[in-house]
Computed example of a mutant assay.
Amino acid sequence: MVQQFKAGMNSCNLFWEKVATDWHEFLPIFTHTSVRLSRTVFRELFYVKWSAEGSNRREKEEDTMYQWECLLMSIQGKVLEGETTDITFEELLTFATGADAIPPLDFPHKCSIEFYDQEEGSCRLPFSSTCALVLYLPRGIAQEDELRDLLTFALKGSLGFGKV
């Protein structure tokens, strides 16, 4: 079977010979070499879909994103100090994308953060679309603890894929 695999790879412009020669370049693709995510790496995975600048919605989104940044710094600080955290970058990544590590060939496109409005008298939890790679956060979060509590409940309270 190994010989068939090599022959199949070589049928594409001698690809297996290239892999065998420059194996160190292909190591991240053919082996699982995930490392703990850092705040910087995690942040670079996402872009923010903002409302129009100067609007009330934009102002509320900026409040939420400030608390999001505070939360990410808090997680990073605890990781560096060797403390346990309620939420890890890997759990946030899994919640937003369905993957607990960055794929070897990266995601097909950048993940995004979008916003929704909380309805009066109710509390809607953050949610995601793992197919579209979108994390939805509520607008107007003014306290880091409030965002942490909402995300913790959403992450820990979800059943996950195939766990019904």
Rank of each mutant, 00 (worst) to 15 (best):
K163V: 10
L45N: 01
L151N: 01
E62I: 08
T33K: 15
N56Y: 08
L93F: 03
F5T: 09
F46H: 02
G98N: 03
M1R: 11
T152V: 11
C123A: 11
K156C: 01
V19F: 02
R124C: 11
R148M: 06
R139A: 07
F5E: 06
A142C: 10
G121Y: 01
L150P: 01
G162K: 10
S129W: 00
R57F: 10
K78P: 05
L92D: 02
V2Y: 11
M65W: 04
L92H: 00
D149C: 08
W50L: 01
L37C: 07
Y116R: 05
P103C: 00
C70D: 03
E62C: 08
K60D: 07
P126N: 08
S158A: 09
Q4R: 13
T31K: 13
W23A: 13
T152C: 10
L155E: 00
E91G: 05
L147F: 06
P28Q: 07
S11A: 10
E69K: 12
R57G: 11
W16I: 02
S11T: 06
S128W: 08
D22F: 14
A99E: 14
P138R: 06
E119F: 14
C111W: 07
H32R: 13
L37E: 06
C70H: 06
S11Y: 04
L27A: 13
E44L: 12
V19L: 11
E120K: 13
S34P: 03
M9C: 12
L151Q: 00
D86W: 09
A154T: 03
V79S: 15
T40I: 04
L45W: 07
L137V: 07
L105G: 00
T152Y: 15
D149A: 11
S74F: 09
L147Y: 04
E114Q: 12
L14F: 08
D22H: 15
M9S: 06
L72F: 01
T94I: 06
E53N: 12
F107I: 06
Q76A: 11
P104T: 02
Q3I: 04
L159F: 11
R36T: 10
L155C: 04
E17V: 07
R139E: 13
T31I: 11
D86P: 08
E146C: 10
I75F: 01
K156M: 04
D22S: 13
G98L: 00
F89H: 03
